[in-house]
Design a protein around this nucleic acid. Structure first.
Lengths: 290, 290
DNA sequence: TTCATTTTGATATATTTTTATCATATTTGT
DNA sequence: ACAAATATGATAAAAATATATCAAAATGAA
């Protein structure tokens, strides 16, 4: 590292606001594969970031370097210093924070959760469950409890775009028997139940099951009692160094499901999304991303 | 890394016996500051190793490369690969699924997002922001837009337990000017704004800012325009192989914040949580975790 | 809208860097 | 010690890479 203790990555980050569109695009491309991409030829970098050659030259000057070669030299110095320094050995997430900082310990735990959970997921069951969720022939009901309703909502609001006949109910709501009434054989119920498991949710799942609905359960590593009657159940590790459980792993699972379902229904979804976006555009409430 | 899984360092080591004196001298010089020195100009490397320029050219050919440029390119590839997966290395996430299964590719992307985002977070700013959020002297307002309201809600529902004077408003709601009216100097506004950025959110943030409130922004890697007026802003990478953006990284950030705030206020929080749990127990809607 | 300003990229020029050639030095075997 | 083979480096030629110039395009203000 040079005299000042700022890494080049930091310098780019700091200048991000002074940069123009093409330059920002370039900056992100550099940070994407940092520092490798900056060590190649200027022209390769330009091509990679889809900007012109002079843009690269201009940006490094804006960053305060004496040309691209100077920039590269400093990058190499930085790399050299980093490799030599045994402490900087990439075992922290937030590089600027000590290992024991909550940013690092928490992230450690989350990554561990993801590892463990993914390792135990049966991809065949996953694909089957996604196919059920994508099936527009039957209605889809999503429900969560006190702690999991946000997850249920997230899932609901995305699926709503992807397919019709989706409803979201809270198991603690007094209205759920009405929804159940309309449930037919082979309809699908996606239910979230994490500790502490809720009686209402169990009853709801049971009744749906008795009406012949397919039950897909998202639960924690200890598994909700609903597990016994569920057609598919996916368990996620949720333990973090906190008074609360983490929703990161289930969220990851949900997003993966949404993406899969979306792909399965892409032909029709495309139109729905387009229409939706157009409507939002018309309200002019939202500015286009530039 | 190229077809074979040997690193270039390995290749040099293996060839060490085939090399002549000057070449061996060079080889050791390369390994000395690996890989940085190999990424500079050939002439610099020659000078550094105290050998002639053609010696370098000859050696890399002996190693099986197609010239010095080829050698450098592969070195860069190796570096790129190394930085990208320091944890994942070989094995896949969902072990039973092939590498290209969405479970694996999606998780790859998410882990990459987490890495990138965490690496750019300033732990000092993080701690300061958490202190603001924990400060019960001032009220706290949480708001999100169309795509981020679920995150805002999640944050809200947890903070509600941890401290008093928290409100959640949607920036698209027509009610927000009323909330703003009550906002005093040094009150805190936590605002979520990811692409596509919403005008309403910007206006809300601006007005809060003008009233002297502290603005904490959670945004994506391209940064919402609110960034300019925010007292703290945290950007998360959200790109995944899907038609949607991922909320996993921001969620991780939120949970870490919640945990930190909780620790800061633990003395008082303890009582609040206990009271809340007791209330839930009494309703007998929830079964104790066994 | 129109005009001024900024941003961007194509091309040409200058620079650096790499590779090839060849003479000199070093090593090795007898 | 001497010759043959090999290794090395100085220099020149070739290639690649970077910078400068300028015109087109995009943006923003009036």
């Amino acid at each position: 590292m040079s005299q000042n203790s700022l890494t080049i990555s930091d310098r780019i980050q700091n200048h991000l606001d002074d940069l123009t569109r093409a330059e920002r695009q370039l900056a992100h491309s550099i940070l994407e594969n940092y520092p490798a991409s900056g060590l190649g030829p200027l022209s390769a970098l330009a091509k990679d970031a889809k900007v012109s050659v002079p843009t690269v030259a201009r940006m490094v000057q804006k960053l305060g370097f004496n040309g691209y070669l100077d920039f590269q030299t400093e990058l190499r110095e930085e790399l050299k210093a980093k490799v030599q320094d045994p402490i900087a050995k990439h075992d922290t997430w937030a590089e600027a924070a000590p290992t024991e900082h909550v940013l690092n310990s928490f992230t450690d735990a989350v990554i561990h959760n993801i590892r463990q959970s993914l390792a135990h997921i049966d991809p065949v069951a996953f694909d089957q469950a996604c196919a059920l969720i994508a099936d527009k022939q039957h209605s889809l009901c999503i429900t969560g409890g006190r702690l999991t309703q946000t997850l249920a909502e997230y899932f609901f609001s995305h699926l709503q775009v992807v397919r019709p006949k989706v409803t979201h109910i809270q198991s603690s709501s007094s209205a759920w028997p009405h929804y159940l009434l309309d449930m037919k054989k082979d309809d699908v119920l996606v239910i979230f139940d994490m500790r502490r498991y809720e009686n209402n949710s169990f009853k709801l799942a049971q009744m749906a099951h008795e009406k012949g609905a397919k039950v897909i359960l998202i639960t924690d590593q200890w598994r909700s009692p609903i597990h016994q009657i569920a057609d598919f159940s996916f368990s996620c590790r949720i333990v973090v160094p906190s008074a609360w459980d983490s929703a990161v792993t289930p969220l990851l699972l949900l997003e993966t499901m949404i993406s899969t379902v979306q792909n399965l229904t892409w032909g029709e979804t495309k139109g729905r999304i387009k229409a939706l976006e157009d409507m939002f555009d018309q309200t002019k409430q939202f500015r286009k991303f530039t």
